[in-house]
Amino acid sequence: MSANGALLHVHDLRVTIGESQILGGVSFQVREGGITGLLGRNGVGKTTTLRGILGLVPRTGKVTLAGEELTALPVHSIVQRGVGYVPEDRDVFGGLTVEENLRLAERADSEHRYALIYELFPELRERAAQRAGTLSGGQQQMVALARALLNASNRILLIDEPTKGLSPLMVKRVADALQRAAQIATILLVEQNLAVARHLASDVVVLDQGSVVFAGDVAALVDDPALARRYLGLSAAGSGH
């Protein structure tokens, strides 16, 4: 662990796809424990930041986890170092059953995690034999979260808009699940639903046009209408999508 107690350091992350620069040097830190929000308007590069941390897109810059540099490693090694990922569009394996999706994410130490995920999402046990592609959006989100939780060596979970497109009831369940997850791993959470972000996150990092424009306490941002409007846009202010 580094001196100031941060678990994840992102330094000068740059992503260029084709001709367009998507991230122009993103730097921030994620404190160990709890939930850090990664906010910003649509298209500012939140998803790309998460994918850049994992190495799913070609990038430059430096990413370290508990002092260990990850940047040169292949994706699967980065994940094996303890970085879990719940992608924006869930990316469940639609042709595989729920049980197979989970089995794929299983590690040697996953046994006791099954109890947790079935407690949070009993549907996953009931629908073990169902093809994940035929699940509802909310149920697919459960699979995606469960996959990340099954790996007990995950130290930080990168979770991208887990409440997107979900009913209010399901948003609540996902938020509860995130709160439980935050007790066993640090979470970097992309969340458009400001109410949810405000409720869950302690710190926030705000991106705008491919770089960090705000980093600090969630209340300082969200409770200041002028700041919130400036960084998150009118559409994001309030609770909506």
């Binding site: 799913l56 292949p74 699967h76 992608p87 990316d91 197979e100 794929l104 790996n151």
Partner: peptide
């Protein structure tokens, strides 16, 4: 297990590596 990895990889290779599996 490898068959499972292959079936998953046929669908979405990068998600398989994002689960920590050396595709």
């Amino acid at each position: 297990r490898y068959g499972l990895i292959v079936r998953a990889g046929v669908e979405n290779r990068s998600m398989v590596s994002a689960l920590g599996i050396d595709v």
